[in-house]
């Protein structure tokens, strides 16, 4: 049984086919990586998988539910969480509050309870705060428990987004280039974090240019090029696929530079 099923998905922007006739299945419990050069349509695909963009054609079925055409918050309600390549941190809040926002779906309450701050809500808020702090420690942000989000360095913000996404208790987590912009040490620490997510029962979709990271944690790899599927299969197979090497891994300085980022 697949957790996520994508059927003939397409997205056009004017004349550009950012994603074209793409189909794949993701079984539960894996780390499923999506790689491809810049502009291949990876971010667009994640935007489609979270309802931020509506597909031009095709279907998205998650956990047996057809979510095509739904709003982003409905995708979240079904258990899909994500992080962003262009950070979408709430900079007007503390780091802890950012993660608490992630607990929204479990915490939400009636307007009356919110306005009157019922004792029950006060207790729930307390628990929420504890749990958010716990998640921050889990992603390695123990030093930022009382920091304001707008005072945190880039690398910490990327982890903050992971903690916020985890706070939603997702079944599926989409990570858009989590290692981009991190220094080598920070990138190395990410391996363990991503690897441990499946242990928490979270299936991971990883979009990433850092091939060391991808090869280290992936069970399965999908290669995109110009919005289309170039190759797909277990990590070891894809790594040695001549098509992939030619289109992505092998050619030129740019790709080489990307690999070493």
């Amino acid at each position: 049984m697949s957790l996520l099923r994508v059927e003939a998905l397409s997205k056009k922007f004017g004349g550009v086919n950012a994603v074209e006739d793409l189909s794949f299945d993701i079984p539960p419990g894996v780390v499923y990586s999506i790689i491809g050069p810049n502009g291949a349509g990876k971010t667009t695909l994640l935007n489609l998988l979270t309802g931020i963009y509506q597909p031009s054609a095709g279907r998205i079925v998650f956990g047996g539910h057809d979510l095509t055409g739904r709003a982003p918050y409905e995708y979240a309600n079904h258990g899909i969480a994500r992080t962003f390549q262009n950070l979408q941190v709430f900079f007007n809040m503390s780091a802890l509050e950012n993660v608490m926002v992630g607990r929204y779906m479990q915490e939400r309450c009636g307007l009356a309870a919110a306005l009157l701050r019922t004792p029950r809500l006060a207790r729930a808020e307390h628990a929420c705060r504890e749990e958010a702090a716990e998640l921050m420690r889990y992603v390695g942000l123990h030093n930022y428990l009382s920091a304001a989000a707008d005072a945190m360095p880039y690398g910490a913000l990327k982890r903050l987004e992971i903690a916020r996404a985890l706070a939603t208790r997702p079944k599926l987590m989409l990570l858009d280039e989590p290692a981009a912009g991190l220094n080598p040490t920070e990138a190395l620490e990410l391996d363990d974090l991503i690897g441990s997510l499946t242990g928490r029962g979270v299936t991971v979709v990883l979009v990433e240019h850092n091939m060391r990271l991808v090869m280290g944690v992936s069970d399965h790899i999908l290669v995109l090029d110009y919005g289309r599927k170039l190759a797909e299969g277990p990590a070891a197979t894809v790594r040695n696929d001549p098509k992939v090497i030619e289109a992505y891994l092998g050619s030129g300085v740019a790709a080489a530079a990307e690999m070493h980022r």
């Binding site: 979270t50 309802g51 931020i52 709003a71 982003p72 918050y73 995708y75 979240a76 309600n77 969480a81 994500r82 962003f84 979408q88 941190v89 709430f90 900079f91 007007n92 809040m93 509050e97 608490m100 926002v101 992630g102 607990r103 929204y104 779906m105 915490e107 939400r108 309450c109 307007l111 309870a113 919110a114 306005l115 701050r117 809500l121 808020e125 929420c128 916020r164 996404a165 706070a167 939603t168």
Partner: peptide, 22 residues
């Protein structure tokens, strides 16, 4: 409250708020 945090969140990033279910 959760609703108030949701308000502040969407002020800062509407997509960021939506993808956590707001």
């Amino acid at each position: 409250s959760p609703a108030g945090r949701a308000l502040r969140a969407l002020h800062s990033s509407e997509v960021g708020a939506e993808v956590v279910g707001i």
